[in-house]
């Protein structure tokens, strides 16, 4: 059963730049297609300012398309982006398009505080992860904040992610990554590099892998677990009589050392086969 089919309401994205980015919000508003599921074309406008605890779902709902309109928030003139479009399938943004538009969006925010505000906003619309999914084995390693990531491959072979963090800024990054990757094909996901998303940084340099660059770690984790899912799917498809499969975290040959184990990625990936 495709786990995405029980989705029923869209989320909106409300962005709050202090300046209008000419590319981002031209006179005639552009529609950024923040969408996850090709089937959810018809959407209504709902502007949650806070994550809805009820919506804690294995299948997080994501954005459809947005349009910008002015409003005032936190004492700054801002732009709120309202969902309202019918987005035909062929207008759906590819991962590459999304990466490009995200880069454009963050590049247009030259003031650090605006970038932080934007991230906080994106954080606020990321559906929270169930308590039961906030477990050690879903942790993304190497972060100064806690990040939990669930990765699933659906029956069509595309990827679904759920992610959450105890830090709001980190959650904002995660929210952006979700928008880019959720529902995408593995090849698309694996083609993105940290440099492609470098404009999303708040403060950190574009280049180089840093232990504290949370979204790098989340990105790598999403990609590593996607790879694991692809591998497992290949293996599973070559087996008959397979219903459902859950990959456990790697068990390493040679056993742990000093009561430690080698954790490069923490692949917990499940996928469904009809």
């Amino acid at each position: 059963m495709d786990s995405s089919s029980n989705l029923n309401f869209p989320f909106t994205i409300s962005c709050t730049p202090t300046k209008l980015n000419p590319q981002f919000c031209p006179q005639k508003p552009t529609f950024l297609t923040f969408m996850k599921y090709p089937s959810s074309f018809l959407t209504i406008s709902s502007i949650p300012t806070k994550p809805n605890p009820q919506s804690c779902s294995k299948n997080p709902i994501f954005f459809t398309s947005i349009r910008c309109s002015r409003n005032i928030r936190h004492g700054l003139s801002s732009v709120s982006c309202l969902i309202m479009e019918e987005a035909p399938l062929d207008e759906r943004l590819s991962v590459v398009d999304k990466v490009r538009s995200l880069s454009l969006e963050f590049r247009s925010l030259s003031e650090p505080i605006d970038r932080v505000k934007r991230l906080l906003h994106y954080a606020s619309i990321l559906p929270p992860l169930c308590e039961s999914a906030r477990v050690q084995e879903n942790r993304v390693l190497g972060c100064t904040t806690q990040v939990w990531l669930e990765v699933r491959m659906n029956s069509r072979g595309s990827m679904n992610f759920s992610v959450d963090s105890d830090s709001e800024i980190t959650k904002g990054f995660c929210s952006c990554l979700m928008w880019v990757f959720d529902g995408a094909e593995p090849e698309e996901i694996l083609s993105v590099t940290a440099e492609d998303l470098g404009d999303m940084n708040v403060g950190l340099p574009k280049k180089g892998r840093s232990r504290v660059n949370t979204w790098h770690n989340v990105l790598f984790s999403m990609q590593n677990r996607t790879k694991d899912c692809v591998q497992e799917r290949k293996r599973a498809l070559s087996l008959e009589d397979l219903h459902s499969l859950v990959i456990r975290p790697h068990e390493h040959v040679g056993g742990p050392s000093a009561n430690g184990s080698y954790l490069e990625s923490e692949p917990k990936c499940s996928f469904e086969v009809k």
């Binding site: 904040t145 830090s167 709001e168 980190t170």
Partner: peptide, 8 residues
């Protein structure tokens, strides 16, 4: 408030 958010 998460300390990393504060530091950022």
């Amino acid at each position: 408030i998460h300390p990393t958010d504060i530091a950022t």
